[in-house]
Design a protein around this nucleic acid. Sequence first.
RNA 1: GAAUCAGUAGCUCAGCUGGUAGAGCACAUCCCUUUUAAGGAUGGGGUCCUGAGUUCGAUCCUCAGCUGAUUCACCA
Length: 574
Amino acid sequence: MEDKHLSEQEAIRREALNELRALGIDPYPAGSFPVNTTTTEILENFNPKKENFSDVSLAGRIMTRRIMGNASFAEIQDEKGRIQIYVRRDDICTGEDKTMYNTVFKKLLDIGDIIGVRGFVFVTKMGETSIHVKELVLLSKSLRPLPVVKEKEGKVYDSFSDPDQRYRQRYLDLIVNPHVKEVFIKRTGIINSIRGFLDAREYLEVETPVLQPLYGGAAAKPFTTYHNKLDTRLYLRIANELYLKRLIVGGFEGVYEFSKDFRNEGMSRFHNPEFTMVELYVAYRDYIWMMDLVEEMLEKVAVDVQGTTEVRVDDKVISFKRPWKRYTMYEVIEEYTGFEISQMDEQQLFSVAGDLGVEVDKTMGKGKIIDEIFGKKCEPYLVQPTFITDYPLEMSPLARKHRSKPGLVERFELIVNGKELCNAFSELNDPLDQRERFIQQLKLGERGDEEAMVLDEDFLKALEFGMPPTAGLGIGIDRLVMIMTNSASIQEVIFFPQMRPLKKEKEDDNAQFTALGIPEEWVDVIRKMGYTTVESFKNNKPGKLHNELCGYNKKNKLGLQNPSPEEVKKWLEN
RNA sequence: GAAUCAGUAGCUCAGCUGGUAGAGCACAUCCCUUUUAAGGAUGGGGUCCUGAGUUCGAUCCUCAGCUGAUUCACCA
């Protein structure tokens, strides 16, 4: 059935595949093809005087081809980069039989095929380091044409740039857009850097459940799923906080986890339904201490992946060099709006919001209004790494109350480039206070807040056994990677971002058509006329169809024997 | 969820005031013994996103839908 929809180019490649087989060449050979160098290694280290790289073995994908009479140039691309290869007829065909060059290389290979070559490195007259090929092996035949992106003097032609196609077919994006690969290499570098930092301090990397009977640790809507054997609903985690704290209760003094979290919310260039966080919990520490750790860790990350503390984002330079600015929530609001709100009650805050043109409504409590003012009037302007500390209690049900400021909690967020990057607090370890906070959340939930947390009795039980004072931290890895790689959207830093499913066109197979008595050769025609289902086909008057069929046959000079009107009528009746 | 823009060949894009479509690359055939987004000649390739409407006639105008992008909103 697939074969019916092949483009001309695809058909030609399949034909080439058959011809290769006929020549006794396996287009998908078994066995390894050991490589002894890489493209960049050659380009960086080849020295004609030293005559090094005199026997290289290299494999990769054919990206360009320029065929002459009996000598050709092509470029092959491996994981590291591209290099030109020079293929001469009499080198790869040492005997009388020139099939390998004339037929196989020139006609049956295509851009996109994966080949292995052996030969020596030299410099062409044009001054380009190339491989003079002595032996060439097809390793994998490509059946679909690759988007061909060309480049000259830094200028890119015919770039493969449609985001939809790039994300849906990321492998193509990776093949033809080399800078994309860089982003993901950096992503792994960032994660490794963080892991190295935390391991050096002997915190234990752990794993906690993705499938949870109760979700918690964040304010978000979950995905739900179902376990058949247990006959119970499960949730995909929105955070791993409550499990990591149970481990602190259990006696570990420093645990962390890189976790995929899932939130059933809107998608945007800053939100993907599944995203990666690293969460860290350290016993006998508080949020002040945690701020220092974050500074040190992210400075190290910047240096590890960039070689410098300066990161260029759009037209700005962001410096991760310590120390960073620290404001309390009230201070930063005063700095950016001129209003000193620390002593204000809900009514006063409401009018301040009005003066500032910040939209608020009656349902919002004090904490929510403050958060709204901060989000609109301060956060977007905080480009350099800045810590904001001491948040309103209402918004932080898992953070401990501030040791000296009533109504606040010991919490900080790190803002970089106008976006929240980390969230941390001195963890609430008073089980009775925690129960009270959960109850408050339940009330919010009853009022219709879909993101309110649920009461986790099992977690409370753990706290009741006693949890040491603990500092906790969460960092959004995707957003960190966005900053470190100057990426405009989260989709650029996730290999396979969530995409709306493509609408599948319903299609019946040939057997369903032939069952009506339609001859095989006409099924094709019917399909091409746009009737892909039996239903859509039968939903016509016989006269009209008969007309259309004959017309199509004539117009496209198919030379088929036209069916009679009676036959068509019969098809529809079957 | 809202506004704006877009959807035409495998890829990147043109297409005037409505008259059934073009270019470059890719592909095919041929020419050329080291080219540089190779060059030259010839050729094949299209459900102009889908569906209605207006019209003698729609890729183009109108409406609805689908998909995407951007900005905003929502969202730790």
